[in-house]
Simulated scan of single mutants.
Amino acid sequence: MISIDLNDFKITSKINLKDQPTKINVDVDEDTVKDELKSVRKKLGKLQDTLYAHGKYSVLICLQGMDTSGKDSLIREVFKDFNVRGVEVHSFKVPTELELKHDYLWRHYIALPARGKFGVFNRTHYENVLVTRVHPYYIMSENIPGIDDVSKIDDAFWDKRYEQINNFEKHIAENGTIIFKFFLNLSKGEQKYRLLRRLNKQEKNWKFSSGDLKERKLWDKYQDCYEEVLNRSSKPHAPWYNIPADDKPVARYLVAKILYDTLSAYSDIEEPVLPDDEKANINLYKQQLENEN
């Protein structure tokens, strides 16, 4: 049994990202961690069935992290026992021509999970205050009125964008979306190891891009932007969790356990029951079926 306090990972006050762990000691071996994950994800899969039948809440899971932080493999392992009809994964890359004809939140709005479903955003609407903050010239492709030069992208612009993102999450939370935001906190040393692994293993080569090394040179700037994201947008209705990501099995377990423990505390999420008149006639319906020719 892994003994940890999941509240230790929730961002509830201003933090310094350098003080947040990228690895924790859970005092058990890797096989035990994997067994614990299997147990939790099975229970999470059953809970998803109930949520689907209940049909009043949706769940949005946001995953952010530096390259190689383990987002893809986490999605594969945590949601392995889900019914495929109940979970949808969206990976947000460079905006398409169509997406750029709308405001920057449009593509996230239309990808939101329907009631009864889980939605996973692999990279999220926060890219709009992360990668665009590091590379502000990307904003120019959005064709925003009044922003015709990078020099006009000032602090007031970013303040407004944070306000818009916080309002977006507040709106969907008030209308039945349960929001989880996970920052997969990877150390620079571990990222180096994982990038080298991609280069050294032929079957992993396809994952490597020279752009990964260019972005790595901007590590400190990205860390500053992530710290600002965590401090400005972790809210009671949409909290951020700092997930130590240097150990992939532990990171997957933490995400699954946080999801299950939080959702199972919703006492109103339960499977619907048959109306009394239908329930009273169950034996009659059985008899009709059994007596069919």
Rank of each mutant, 00 (worst) to 15 (best):
T124P: 01
S91P: 01
F208Y: 15
K286H: 10
D246H: 03
V250A: 04
P113D: 07
L254R: 04
I15K: 02
D19P: 03
P275R: 08
G86H: 03
R133Y: 14
P113M: 08
V33G: 00
R41S: 14
W240G: 10
R216F: 14
Y52D: 02
K71F: 00
S187K: 03
P145M: 02
N231W: 06
I172R: 05
D81G: 02
I153K: 01
V255R: 02
L213P: 07
W240L: 08
D159Y: 05
S187M: 03
I269R: 00
D212Q: 11
P244I: 09
Y52L: 11
N281A: 15
P95C: 02
W106C: 00
G211R: 09
L17Y: 06
S73C: 08
A173I: 07
T32Q: 15
L196M: 15
K214L: 13
P275A: 13
D247A: 05
H237P: 06
R133H: 15
Y266I: 04
D29I: 07
D49F: 07
L100A: 01
N25H: 10
I24W: 10
I243N: 00
E163W: 07
S141H: 13
T262G: 10
W206K: 09
R115V: 12
W158G: 00
L230G: 01
D81W: 06
I110T: 15
K43L: 14
K188W: 02
G55K: 10
V84E: 14
K286E: 10
P272C: 11
V89P: 01
K42R: 14
N122D: 14
G146P: 01
L74D: 01
K43N: 13
T12D: 13
K217Q: 15
A238P: 00
D261Y: 08
K257P: 06
R107T: 06
N122H: 03
F183P: 07
L63W: 02
E163K: 15
T124N: 00
L254P: 07
L196Y: 12
I4N: 08
Y193W: 08
M1C: 06
D276L: 13
E227P: 05
K188G: 09
I11T: 11
Y104S: 01
L51S: 01
G176V: 04
Q164H: 09
V59D: 07
D103W: 03
R198P: 08
N293K: 14
S264G: 01
V129A: 04
L186E: 03
Y222V: 09
D29K: 10
K18Y: 10
L254A: 12
P145L: 05
Q20T: 13
R76G: 11
D261S: 14
N16G: 05
E174P: 05
P145C: 01
F9N: 05
F168S: 03
D155G: 05
T124K: 02
E30Y: 02
I165N: 00
Y266T: 03
A238V: 09
E97F: 04
K204W: 10
R252N: 11
Y137A: 14
V150Q: 06
W206F: 15
L284Y: 14
D224P: 00
I2R: 08
D5R: 12
K204V: 00
E227S: 06
K93R: 14
S58W: 04
F92K: 05
L130G: 00
F118W: 03
G65W: 03
I15S: 04
E88I: 11
Q287D: 08
R76F: 08
H54T: 09
P95D: 07
Y260D: 02
Y193H: 13
Q48W: 01
N166S: 06
W158V: 00
V120K: 11
